[in-house]
Structure formats: structure tokens, C-alpha cells
């Protein structure tokens, strides 16, 4: 299997896996925030790392609050949850019920964001992991304030390398918070995933 042979039905299957993972995470965030989470259908693209800068729908602001988990080994990539700065602060304030003062992201509040990011990323990776049926090796979650393009560049990805970008948005109703989930997958890992999906589909 190769990237050029990537069929619509393959992208569709991965999209559905991301959807299921995000849905599970949204149910947990719903419990935490007591607000309904509006979900959107993920958009999947295969792009070069250096194209991440020009992809629409991703925050270009370097102050974007990002939680990411890298995974290594037979299945390599990064899954990140990105909050535009104002959304990050509003979400933390909504979760903790704080009303006083300014919504600055200090050490304790970023830890809260890290948990929310962790919930979403684990939801998505859990869904993918179920299909892979093989143990993924994860690194601990990390909180950074940077663009996803810079994060990808600072990781081991080669700028010319083509990766799968799964991009989905969710909104926390009532508090108008936006989150963007991005999964960057090395092509070799994408091949493994597609192979497993084909097996599940019986193709």
C-alpha cells in the first residue's frame, strides 16, 4: 500500500475512527463542563510537513495552547489538541468555575488543559489502537504553546515527509470554546493502519 494509492474509502475509515474517539472524549468533557459539545466531521488530508503552515483551519498564532502525545515504534506520529488562546482560558475558567480575575494560563491552569487534551487524544488513539490490535508506545503528554507546524518541525518528522493530517473541530456550547484535534501520522504508520482497516472491512 502507498500514499498515492490512498483511496477515499481508506480516508473515510480513518475519519470514522477519529470521529468515534472524539465522540467518546466529548462525552467525558460534557461531564466535566456540564455543557453540550458540538462535534464536526473530521477533515483528512495527506500533505507534506512544510504545508502545515498554509493549511486552513489551523491556528497560526504561536500562543495557541497545545497538548500533544507522541507515539513511537511500529506506529509513529503525534496527536495534538490545539486551543486558540482565548478558548483555552475560557475553557479552564468554565471547568473550574472561576469568575474572578483575568483568565491567564498559569501552571495550574495549563495542567487542567493538559487533562482535557489528554482525554481527547486518548479517545482518538484508543479508537485507532482498537483497530490496530497491537500495542502503541506512547510518550507522556506534553503542553506547549506553539503552532502545529512548529511542533511537527521540532519533532523527528522530515519537512518533505508526507503525513496524514486529521483535523477536527469541536465547540463547547454555552461557553463558545473551540478545540482542534490534529493527528500527524508517518506514512509508514499510515500503511499499517490501512492494512488493519482493510482486514476489519474484510477487504
Amino acid at each position: 500500500m502507498c500514499v498515492t494509492c490512498l483511496k477515499d474509502e481508506d480516508l473515510d475509515a480513518i475519519k470514522e475512527l477519529v470521529n468515534i474517539g472524539v465522540g467518546r472524549a466529548a462525552a467525558m468533557l460534557n461531564e466535566i463542563t456540564c455543557s453540550h459539545i458540538i462535534l464536526h466531521v473530521p477533515i483528512l488530508q495527506v500533505i507534506r510537513i512544510d504545508e502545515l503552515d498554509s493549511i486552513g483551519g489551523l491556528p497560526r498564532n504561536e500562543g495557541a495552547a497545545t497538548v500533544k502525545i507522541d507515539f513511537r515504534g511500529f506506529f509513529t506520529g503525534t496527536t495534538a489538541l490545539i486551543f486558540p488562546p482565548e478558548s483555552a482560558a475560557a475553557l479552564v475558567m468554565a471547568i473550574t468555575g472561576e469568575t474572578d480575575g483575568q483568565p491567564e494560563l498559569d501552571a495550574i491552569r495549563t495542567e487542567t488543559l493538559m487533562e482535557v487534551g489528554n482525554i481527547f487524544i486518548n479517545g482518538v488513539m484508543g479508537s485507532i489502537g482498537n483497530v490496530l490490535g497491537q500495542q502503541i508506545t506512547y510518550l507522556p503528554p506534553v503542553y506547549v504553546e506553539d503552532t502545529i507546524a512548529n511542533i511537527a518541525r521540532s519533532a523527528r518528522f522530515d519537512p518533505d515527509e508526507r503525513v496524514l493530517l486529521a483535523n477536527t473541530h469541536f465547540y463547547v456550547e454555552d461557553i463558545n470554546v473551540e478545540g482542534i484535534i490534529v493527528m500527524i501520522l508517518e506514512i509508514g504508520s499510515l500503511d499499517i493502519l490501512l492494512g488493519r482497516i482493510a482486514a476489519v472491512r474484510g477487504g
Binding site: 470514522e16 470521529n19 468515534i20 472524539v22 465522540g23 467518546r24 466529548a26 462525552a27 460534557n30 461531564e31 453540550h36 459539545i37 462535534l39
Partner: peptide, 9 residues
């Protein structure tokens, strides 16, 4: 039959 499994949904 949905991935959106929130109780509110």
C-alpha cells in the same frame, strides 16, 4: 447510531 455518545445528545 452515532459516535456522539454524549448524554445530552
Amino acid at each position: 447510531l452515532t459516535a456522539d455518545i454524549q448524554e445530552s445528545t
